[in-house]
């Protein structure tokens, strides 16, 4: 039996026992295993963490995120990433319930994983997610002048924050050349039209796209 299978099975059985949920597995080209488990609620996090800790897993990190893109979405979740030999298990905990998007607090797992401390403080300050029983609830990186939860308030972003600085600089670059672009709606480099589905299959050698202007059509002199 290869080590891959062994650590897979250990994790699988431990999590099955603790949460009554089966882990889904994917493999990369080198046959490293990636396990994916989605818990039903934050209650199951403690037993899952306990089971992983008892089987020698190491906490890699945790990722808090907003599940859907969109101005009004507030469906937050946390993915806990654990490592055991060549296996990475991601346990996802949704922080919302049916009909209620307001994120619920999550229990701290610092009693099983010492290095959860910083991770939990980070998602608290970046996403405004509350933690139950955190031993050291202070800001980690984010300056006090910025609001807690800045990531979740920025993810449903508009170009507002972002475009202004770039636009301003480009206006000066073009002004130095004698071109006034203050009224133009051209793109300024870093503004990605958010959410626009783009086919990224490259290389794009097929046919460059143009916006051909017909020479015969009357010029629209707006």
């Amino acid at each position: 039996m290869t080590p891959t299978n062994k650590s897979n099975e250990i994790v699988h059985d431990a999590l099955l026992q603790a949460t009554e949920l089966a882990t889904q597995w994917t493999f990369d080209v080198k046959q490293n295993a990636f396990g994916w488990l989605r818990l039903n609620n934050t209650e199951s996090l403690r037993p899952a963490a306990k089971a992983l800790a008892e089987n020698g897993a190491r906490l890699c990190t945790m990722t808090a995120y907003v599940e859907e893109r969109g101005e009004n979405s507030n469906k937050k979740a946390i993915a806990y990433h654990f490592a055991l030999a060549n296996t990475v298990v991601t346990v996802t905990v949704p922080l919302y319930t049916a009909g209620c998007d307001t994120p619920v607090a999550v229990p701290s797992i610092t009693s099983w994983f010492r290095n959860a401390d910083w991770n939990e403080r980070e998602f608290h300050e970046m996403f405004g997610i509350d933690i139950v029983d955190h031993p050291n609830p202070k800001r980690l990186f984010l300056d006090e002048r910025l609001d807690a939860g800045i990531m979740s308030s920025l993810i449903p972003f508009s170009a507002m924050v972002h475009g202004a600085a770039t636009r301003n600089l480009w206006e000066q670059v073009m002004a130095a050349k004698g071109v006034d672009i203050t009224g133009s709606d051209g793109s300024y480099g870093l503004e990605n039209p958010h959410g626009a589905p783009t086919d990224i299959s490259t290389p794009p050698i097929e046919e460059p796209t143009f916006t051909p202007v017909s020479a015969t059509a009357p010029e629209n002199g707006n």
Partner: peptide, 18 residues
């Protein structure tokens, strides 16, 4: 460690690294 979530657009919905 890197973790990425994508929708079908070419902008990731979440990119996390540790």
């Amino acid at each position: 460690f890197y973790f990425i979530r994508t929708d079908e657009s070419d902008i990731p919905t979440r990119l996390k690294w540790r």
